[in-house]
Write a protein that binds this DNA or RNA. Sequence first.
RNA 1: GCCGAAGUGGCGGAAUGGCAGACGCGCCGGACUCAAAAUCCGGUUCACGCAAGUGAGUGUGGGUUCAAGUCCCACCUUCGGCACCA
Length: 960
Amino acid sequence: MPMYNPKEIEPRWQKYWEEHKVFRAADVSDKPKYYILDMFPYPSGSGLHVGHPEGYTATDILARYKRMRGFNVLHPMGWDAFGLPAEQYAIETGTHPRETTQKNIATFRRQIKMLGFSYDWDREVDTTDPKYFKWTQWIFLQLFDTWYDAEQKRGRPIAELPIPAEVEAKGPDAVAAYRDGKRLAYQAEVPVNWCAALGTVLANEEVVDGKSERGGHPVVRMPLRQWLLRITAYADRLLEDLEPLDWSHSIKAMQREWIGRSEGAEVDFRLAENEETIRVFTTRPDTLFGATYMVLAPEHALVKRITTARQQTEVDEYRAATARKSDFERTEIAKKKTGVFTGAYALNPVNGKSVPIWIADYVLVSYGTGAIMAVPGHDERDWEFAVQFKLPIIPVVLPPQSWLQATDVYRLLKEQLAESQSDGRQVPTMSPGGMQVVQKATPLWDRLGQDLGKVVEQLYRNHIQLFSEAYTDEGTAINSGPFDGLPTAEFKAQITRWLEERKQGQRKVNYKLRDWLFSRQRYWGEPFPILHEQGGRIRPLDVSELPLTLPELDDFKPSGKPEPPLGKATGWVQVTRDGKTYLRETNTMPQWAGSCWYYLRYIDPKNDKAFCDPAREKYWMPVDLYVGGAEHAVLHLLYARFWHKVLFDRGHVHTPEPFQRLVNQGMILGEMEYTGFKNNGTWVSPTKETPPGLETVRLDEDQVEKSGDSFVLRENPKVRVEARAYKMSKSRGNVVNPDEVVDEYGADSMRLYEMFMGPLEATKPWSMRGVEGVFRFLNRVWRLFVDERGDSVKLSDQVKDVPPDKDTLRKLHQTIKKVTLDLDAMSFNTAIAAMMELSNVLTRHESRSRSVLETFVLLLSPFAPHLAEELWLIMGHGKTLAHEPWPPFDEGLTREDEIEVPVQINGKVRGKIVVPADIDQASLEKAARADDKIQALLAGKTIKKVIVVPKKLVNIVIAG
RNA sequence: GCCGAAGUGGCGGAAUGGCAGACGCGCCGGACUCAAAAUCCGGUUCACGCAAGUGAGUGUGGGUUCAAGUCCCACCUUCGGCACCA
């Protein structure tokens, strides 16, 4: 009974591939290279998830395809194995994270191998392997040894940093401190997100809604000495170099937004009372004349010095309250603005007017200068604040009429006008605000020729308080002294020059991007290769001392204080060098570190002299295609690009960008679920906000039916039910385990289904029935070759050494063409559909041409490699098909002899004609007109126009 | 609120401005079978009709065009990201 048996076939071929090293990438080769990379996984304890193999299958298909197209393909896999869960588990059970990690890696490796991916396993990397993180530490030392030369726009060795004479004069300590302050890896006392439950500091991006991303524990802000990486120095280059990359528009947009470049000016406001100045950043220097107050962030250093005695208590209280709030709370309660007056005043540099200085938590200390000039007329936040605290509002930008006429003021006056013209009756009810508008408008009415537009404009100029919101776009300057009448852009340029001439301001570019908080108070991470001398001097380890491995610990429990657990390893921490005693850095690197450069290590994974051999780097880089989940759209990709640029500046890699093309696979959701709702036992339809406390009932597919736009209960069609697929999660119980799928249908079916579900980049629900569908397809393919009724596995008698008939040959070449073009476009689902069509055609034939079947196997082989290898073997080939040339197609053979062309009358299909494929335009029109049905419909009508699209259609336009 | 992606049969989805629904699932009918499963063949957007057919139809409303799922404008919904960034 030689049935298709993936359980037997698949392990056998996996063993063959491994033993024969079929997928080894040559380090040097005359062939063109193709580097195709997957985002390597974090080997979690729960094993592989069906989401992982989606991207891996896509890249594997392409890797196999590219090999057949004659490329030397680099397709590696590895493990991003440092991470919190293993340490969390160690804290709970005392198991060493290394042990947990190795176990998890073994599971992942087994699961990934079971799917038959063509990885070059000799290149496997593991970020927790000292042979690997030796070079992670080495790259950190490169960052430590680099400063950013803003003039040359590149990172340079710290030894080349010019030391100012006055620093030099203060001695070697001052010079060292100066250097340390310029390095790309530097220490600073920064307010960090301290998570007591995890016993660690989290990066901003690891904090979601004021809670830790992992575990959902509360997070508070506290100042701590930390390592930071000066990624902000590279902000401009990270932005500019994004442009030419072949990445999706949306990922580029997300990165751009994250970097958040904004152009504007820094302006200095002198204090009224003393010599202090407050520097603010603004993107709208053209609104300076409308600055009626200033706001400092509560944490701003100047607050202490400027607060007057009278306001002291209030300010202190406000500052204390702010410090207690997490970032989350600060934004949560953002609906209503809060703040207090400091008692101090500053002088507006453009007109010398005195403006009050407030503090408020809507100003962030970490952006710009931590202080703003408030222009309530033209900034929404300032408007709200000014209304709240009754601060003056001065309009300095005249909005266009289109905006003015969309305001409540305009609408109100218009209504008023209509009322009075109709019967002169008083408007029965009018708000006090409305009354005011009318009252202010009345004297203007006759003076401005009863022009409503002019009246509203005049009201805007003189009574801006009547309006309900700030106008924040560009317009024409008003109330701005000599600058009146200038359009915004021109004004900005002029005022910036004006400020620069008076040394009161300058052009300035700001970024949302912050320096990267690079240290963690954890055990399971790369130790920093840094020694601390008493007195604060730091000394990097020598390259020869790398790798610096982790000390063994008895327990991994956090101290509950911000001190990292490595501090417990006293023997490890104390070091003597050249007779001096040093303390090792006890922070460790974050999980991102290892993943920032792994793609380089794959190129030369065993090198112990360098992170990567330069000649090999030159051959393989950049990565031609990088595939992974969109969750890494910003951080991983931004961090990796940053490290790559530093390595580039320091001459270690030859491309400024690591990943030429990036594709994000979509998420795979659980199976579609139907949910009904019951209230006290009675079925109810869900509403927009379904009240809590309703009983939810999982419904079977045949209990529901479609009615209009929604699904309803079959037994009671008045009751709507919810139909949707959810994210897979343990708690929902809708997780699909690849082991089970492979066990039941085999790896080839799993692979094929993952690709057949829909476009790679789309989010799509899983369906076990769908897996069964592709499994049936593979069974049909098997039966094309093998007679299942025979006693042993051998080629079916129906396969004959005969040339194919014309139709089959055409279908074959059409399929080759379709599959080839679809692979190049990564449209895997339609390529599979094309192969299904071919197999459907072949199934119908009693006898099958051997040459057609051979070509078909080659087409199928990247998708279902095990089955394809087996069939190739059955056809009598002695070795793997992995390096067989990809079948070419003959364009001439794909063409049909006859085609069916629709004939339309006024755009509606009214008939179809069969004509020779190479028919000329005139004959096609003639044939269309000659068709019986068409003639009948045309009888007695006037033809206005005939459109003939060669080989496509004829459209006859008639009158009436 | 802002940015991005997407809305097509019962479901997943397919369609260089040129026959909407390829392919698969599900369902219906038939063949094979004592029967079932598996397999093979046929049908399957909806409405009306015995049928030939007719009409409607790609989130909604407008527009461009001989022709719109596809292009333009406005809006709605869902998903992803960002969110007091001055």
